[in-house]
Design a protein around this nucleic acid. Structure first.
Lengths: 338, 338
DNA sequence: TTGAAAGCGCTAACAC
DNA sequence: GTGTTAGCGCTTTCAA
C-alpha cells in the first residue's frame, strides 16, 4: 500500500500538491495534474481513510441506529439507507437499540469517538440531552418518525393519521359497520397518530364505542390476543383496523383459528406495507408506507446535511397508499353478521 | 473533547504512561494509576478511535458483506453478528452485494482503506484473488456457507444435505409417495447440497423420476412457477420439498390458487426456518437452520481470529432441526391422490 | 500555482 | 516504572 508521499515522490511534486489534486481544493496546473494522475495509477494509490479521518475529521461513514435490524420494516429501511449511502461514497454502520435508551447512548458514545459523519435515528429513544450534545459536537443527525427537538434535525415519516383515516374509510366502503382498532405502543408517534385517525373517523358513527379499541404491541402475538379480546366483547365486529401489519397478521391468525372467514365476515386492514403482507392467506389489505423511499430520503437528507448542502431542517411527511387485497374483499351487500 | 495529552498533564505524568494504562501494555505504578483514573474521570476522557486506528492499525470495526439485508434470512443473521460484535466492543459495517462480485470487490476496496479489522462474507461471490489479497494484507475473514479457499478462512454453514434427507424422510413418514423437489440456484452450495440430499433419498424409490425436480430461484415467485410446472407434469404429486422457505411459500400459494388443500393432499416442507414460516396458512413445516447461532458463531470466530486467539481455521457444520407444522399434516392413511 | 511544515491524537520503541 | 520522541498518512495554513 503506497502513501501520498510515494505518489508525490514519483510525480516529482510535494504532498500538498497531490492532496490538493485529490481533494480538488486549490489550484493545480493541468500538466502536473497529469503527472500526478499517472503516478497514482502506476502505484495503485488509494488514500488512507483513517489518516484522512484524523486529519480532516471526516470519515465518510454514517450510522443507522434502529430498534432491531431483524424486524422486516427496518431491514427494508436499512437497505434503502445503504443503497443511497453507497452511491454517495459513504459506508454505513448499524446498531440495534431494542428501543432502549441506554443502548442508544452507548452507540452514540462509540460513534463520536470514531468521528462518524452523521447518524440516522430510526429508534424512538433519542433524548433531548443526547440531541443537544450531538448538536454541540457538530454531529448532524436526522430522525425517522420523531425527533427530540424540532430544531436540529430533519424528520421523515409518513402520513399516519391520514393513513388511518383511509383505512377506516376503505373498511366502510366495503360495507363494514362495526370496525375495531388495535393500537400500538403509545410512546411511538406512529401508533398514536394512527389511533387518532381511527378515533376521528369513527366517533361520529352511531355504532362507535370506546370498547372497540384494544391495545397490541406492534407484534403478531399482540395482534392475536387483542383480536381474541375484541371478539369476546363484540362478536359482531365486521372490520378490524390494526395499527401495523404484524398485528394485522396476528388478527388474521386469531380469526382463522376461530374459523371466522376473513374478508367475507370480518375485513382486516393493516398498516406499513411490509413484504409479508403478500404472503398471508388471504393476502392483507394495508396502508403502505413508502418504506424504501423513506430510507432513501432520510439517508439523502443526512448526507446533504453533512456536506453543508441542506438549507434547513424540516419535517417531511410522505404519502401512504391503500393497497387493497383479499383481506377486505366482501361480496356486494355481504354484511350478514354471524 | 479532551485528549490523552490533557489527561497526562492533569495527572502529572507523560502520555506514554497514560497510553500504557489505557492499553494495559507495560507497567504502571498503582498510585499513578489512581491519579490517571481520576484525571480521566475528571476530564471525561475517551480515546479517539480514529487516532488509535491510524497509529495502531486497529479500528475495532468489522464488516458484514451479505447479498441483501432486507432478505429475512440475512437480517436475522445480521442481528446476531451485531449482538456479538457489540459485546466484544466492535462496531459493524454492512454492505449489500446483491451477489455481484463487482459490488463485493468495491466494498473490499473501501474497507481496506478504512483499516477494518476483519470481514464476514455471507455473500457467495468472493473470488480466489480477493481472498488471496486479503490474506496478503493480513485482513482476517470468515465465510458463511462457502469460502473460496479452505485455507485462510473458517466457514460456518449448516448440514444442508442431512437436512434435505430429513425433509424427505419426514414427507415419507407422513405418507407421501411421490415427492417433488424445487431446487435453488446451483452456484450456491446450500442449494446444491439440498438437491443432492433429495436425490440420494429418493432415487432408490420406485416412483422416482428426474422430472420430479424443478428449478426455482430461492424466491417466492420462483417457487410458484416451479410448482405450477410440476403439477402439470405430475398432477399426482403428494409432497413437495422446496430448497428454501421462500420457494416453499411460493408452493403454498400456487397450491392454494389451484384449490389444492395443502397438508391433506399435498404436503410441503421448506428449508431455513425464517420467521415467516409461522405466518403462512397453513403454517409451514421446515428444516430450520440455527440462523442466530450461525451469525453469533461466525462473528465470534472472526473476532477471535482478529485477536489472534483462533487456533486454526476450519469448517463448522451446524445441526438443522425439523419443525413440523400443518403444511405436512395428513390424516392417518389419507393418501388418496386427486 | 506550488512547497514546507505543523498538526490531527495516539502507539510503541527506546532511553532513563 | 516512566518519559521522550518518532511516526501512522493525511490536510491545511502560510509563504514563496
Amino acid at each position: 500500500m503506497s502513501t501520498i508521499r510515494d505518489v508525490a515522490k514519483l510525480a516529482g511534486v510535494s504532498v500538498s500538491t497531490v492532496s490538493r489534486y485529490l481533494n480538488k481544493s486549490g489550484y493545480v496546473n493541468s500538466e502536473t495534474e497529469q503527472t500526478i494522475k499517472y503516478a497514482i495509477d502506476k502505484l495503485k494509490y488509494a488514500p488512507n481513510q483513517v489518516a484522512r479521518g484524523l486529519a480532516g475529521k471526516k470519515t465518510n461513514t454514517i450510522a443507522l441506529i434502529l430498534p432491531d435490524i431483524s424486524n422486516l420494516f427496518f431491514s427494508d429501511l436499512a437497505r434503502a439507507v445503504e443503497d443511497v449511502a453507497a452511491t454517495y461514497g459513504y459506508t454505513v454502520i448499524f446498531g440495534n437499540s431494542d428501543d432502549q435508551a441506554v443502548k442508544e447512548k452507548r452507540y452514540i458514545e462509540t460513534l463520536k469517538q470514531k468521528y462518524i459523519d452523521g447518524i440516522i435515528f430510526a429508534s424512538n429513544t433519542l433524548g433531548h440531552d443526547d440531541a443537544e450534545m450531538l448538536t454541540k459536537l457538530g454531529i448532524p443527525f436526522v430522525c425517522l418518525d420523531r425527533g427530540p427537538s424540532e430544531e436540529n434535525s430533519s424528520i421523515v415519516r409518513s402520513k399516519n393519521k391520514e393513513g388511518a383515516i383511509m383505512a377506516v374509510q376503505h373498511l366502510l366502503d366495503v360495507g363494514c359497520r362495526k370496525i375495531a382498532h388495535i393500537y400500538g405502543p403509545q410512546h411511538l408517534i406512529t401508533a398514536k397518530e394512527r389511533l387518532i385517525g381511527y378515533e376521528q373517523s369513527v366517533q361520529i358513527l352511531d355504532w362507535y364505542s370506546p370498547t372497540l379499541i384494544e391495545p397490541g404491541d406492534f407484534r403478531i402475538a399482540g395482534g392475536m390476543k387483542a383480536t381474541d379480546r375484541l371478539l369476546e366483547r363484540h362478536p359482531d365486529i365486521d372490520g378490524i383496523f390494526a395499527g401495523n401489519d404484524l398485528m394485522a397478521i396476528g388478527a388474521l391468525k386469531a380469526l382463522h383459528r376461530k374459523g371466522i372467514p376473513v374478508g367475507r365476515q370480518v375485513a382486516v386492514c393493516g398498516f406499513d406495507g411490509i413484504q409479508t403482507t403478500e404472503i398471508t392467506v388471504p393476502e392483507l389489505t394495508t396502508i403502505a408506507q413508502p418504506i424504501y423511499d423513506m430510507g432513501a430520503l432520510i439517508s439523502r437528507l443526512l448526507i446533504k446535511k453533512i456536506e453543508g448542502k441542506l438549507e434547513e431542517d424540516r419535517l417531511y411527511e410522505l404519502d401512504v397508499k391503500l393497497i387493497v387485497r383479499d383481506s377486505t374483499f366482501r361480496r356486494q351487500g355481504t354484511n350478514e353478521q354471524a
